[in-house]
Design a protein around this nucleic acid. Structure first.
Lengths: 120, 120
DNA sequence: ATTACTGTACTAATCGCTTAGTACAATAAT
DNA sequence: ATTATTGTACTAAGCGATTAGTACAGTAAT
């Protein structure tokens, strides 16, 4: 299935986020080999150049590294992945609270709304 | 203060969201006159054309309407504003839950994290 | 009447993202 | 040895968003 890439921000950014999620959620484990640039591009339904840009950006954070001709691999640093997961969570929660506060809700009201939502 | 317009999606989309929030949060009340296109553009720090695009898009939803030469006004339909507010809230909550579930959290875990966050 | 302000319309130029296409060197597989 | 696959690099083109600049017609204020 082609990835869901339509939500405003540049596709290569969405690809980065998608891959980060695949890594922190365990789809790719530390040391795993990633599919090739071309395969990932085909899977995502984008141009190989776009996938390459996303991957080389990801690489600059150290989350993945490439062995020149044998492929690209997930970092084996468990801590880096754990920290990324925590950081992604924090970003989501903060973004959510900021948005809701802009809409005029207090912290307590937000908590109440979340309670309601998680009960249905 | 210039608006905070840097988060990936096109500026005119962010302007639309910004204005919607200003309306549902009560900064602009039903029937209020909006500042002129040029003033809003100056306030937001964007080109008047960009602001115009955002406003004419907003207009197509009925939330604002323009009186050809005297200015642009917020709708007087209270219900439309209420519904928009509810819809914006729903979107935020759903987006948040989807993101968190992608990161591997269950509904209960999400609720727990929100509790923690709202307590500090 | 004159002036200032309103929304609106239009062209041209620029910038970033994306795609298309091609190419190369190094490794793996056969 | 030959072939396929790897990451990487590069140019050219197209597209949408944005900016800059200009212009016009209708209304309000003076």
């Amino acid at each position: 299935m082609p990835w869901n890439l339509n939500s405003g921000s540049p596709i290569f950014v969405q690809i980065i986020e998608h891959l980060q999620i695949d890594i922190v959620s365990g789809k790719y484990k530390p040391g795993d080999k990633l599919p090739s640039v071309r395969d990932l591009a085909g899977e995502a339904g984008v141009n190989p150049n776009t996938m390459q840009k996303a991957l080389s950006d990801l690489e600059s954070t150290g989350l993945v590294h490439s062995e020149r001709t044998s492929g690209r691999f997930i970092t084996e640093d468990d801590n880096m992945i754990k920290n990324l997961r925590k950081s992604l969570v924090d970003v989501q929660i903060e973004k959510f609270f900021k948005s809701m506060e802009k809409l005029g809700f207090t912290g307590e009201e937000i908590l109440e709304l979340v309670k309601e939502y998680s009960q249905k």
